[in-house]
């Protein structure tokens, strides 16, 4: 048993336990926090597989950005009133159904691929013609050449989603005062120096 195997068991054990806690804990904020722990451990497993670029991107994108927004929303919910026993039972059949679908898909994949566990080294490092490069370079040289169209396309899809959500939520309300910085900074012709005679005042 090597150190990497030991750390793999550690990461995967925490990963499984924390994902179990995500669905079993009662407090939604705790759920999100356990979800973040699960993400972190998944990133750890990526590191063991020498996919350090993917690990870091997983943390930056999912943990650093997506989960923060998620936590943000969940924190502002008034969950003390919304959580009840019947609520959980109500969603049970759908949850079981989705779980079953996932298990079935996993089984189908495992039956069809004949996973050879003796070749775990190849599985964890399938791009052997890139072995002299760091995996950041390897991903870059594939993503920006062979898959550049798909890469651009996914970018455009995200852009459309962003524009869509802005269009849906943006509305100009009447009577809201806005700061226009350029106008505020611009003093040309708006400031006048006046000599005021005492006792007479001045017309502005």
């Amino acid at each position: 048993m090597s150190i990497s195997l030991l750390t793999f068991y550690l990461f995967s054990a925490i990963l499984l336990l924390s994902s179990l806690m995500v669905i079993s804990t009662k407090n939604p904020v705790h759920s999100v926090l356990f979800l973040i722990l699960a993400f972190l451990n998944a990133a750890g497993i990526f590191v063991i597989l020498h996919a350090e670029f993917l690990a870091m991107i997983l943390i930056i994108v999912y943990v650093g950005a997506v989960a923060v927004l998620f936590l943000f929303v969940v924190m502002m919910l008034d969950f003390k009133t919304s959580l009840g026993k019947d609520n959980i039972l109500q969603y049970m059949p759908i949850g079981l159904l989705i779980g079953l679908v996932f298990i079935a898909e996993l089984v189908i994949v495992l039956i069809n691929t004949r996973l050879d566990l003796s070749n775990i080294q190849i599985l964890s490092n399938p791009l052997d013609n890139f072995s002299d490069q760091s995996n950041t370079e390897a991903i870059g040289s594939i993503l920006y050449t062979n898959y550049v169209l798909y890469f651009q396309l996914s970018g455009v899809i995200l852009l459309v989603a962003m524009v869509g959500s802005i269009v849906l939520t943006l509305r100009d309300r009447e009577g809201v005062k806005r700061q226009i910085v350029s106008e505020q900074v611009d003093r040309e012709g708006k400031i006048e120096l006046v000599d005021v005679k005492s006792g007479e005042g001045v017309d502005i």
Binding site: E52, M56, I57, V68
Partner: peptide, 21 residues
């Protein structure tokens, strides 16, 4: 490590959790 700068970026993006929690 080869992804040093990404590591720092990742860790510093986690810093927000301490404050949020």
């Amino acid at each position: 490590i080869n992804v040093g700068i990404l590591y720092i970026f990742a860790i510093s993006s986690l810093g927000v959790y301490g404050i949020l929690m």
